[in-house]
Amino acid sequence: MDLVLTIVFYAFAILAVVGALTAALSAIASRRLLGLVGVAVGTSGVLFSFSAWLVALLALVCLGASALLVGGGGQDRGTASARPGWLGEAGPVTLAGVAATASLFVLLVAAAAGGSFQNAGSGSAGVTASALGRVFFARDALAVDAVGAAVMIALAVGALARGRRS
């Protein structure tokens, strides 16, 4: 990998991880939003360093919109009682959500029609159900078991912590 792309990878990886931790731990909504924007920008930069230009752009748009939707939720509490009726009466946030949903539909249709997902079952592509099964349950069976055990322990600890709080 090129030196510049290596520097880009590490810089944006640090930005993404620090942003995720800020979003997780900060109690202030504006800082949480800032952290989520950092996650979006950092992830896009990491994908850019992988030479995945289009995916980096899509990640920036999708994760940025997701950060604005989720992180800015605390600012809408004062206006939450105003229920929009039709599209003309809706607020800007609702209109942005409708536009994002329509864009998501169009992009998914374009990906389904033009991508290589439709060729996945023909045997020419590298990812098929049988190949995944051989990898997960034969070659890397121990690693899959370890990941499953780690996820189960993490879920159990999280449920225990939440139960103690409430």
């Binding site: 995916v55 990640a59 997701s66 290589s116």
Partner: peptide, 17 residues
Amino acid sequence: SPETGQELAALVCFMGL
């Protein structure tokens, strides 16, 4: 297939949104 991982990454981003 060289594009499969990138397509899955894009799909994950869409799912998150």
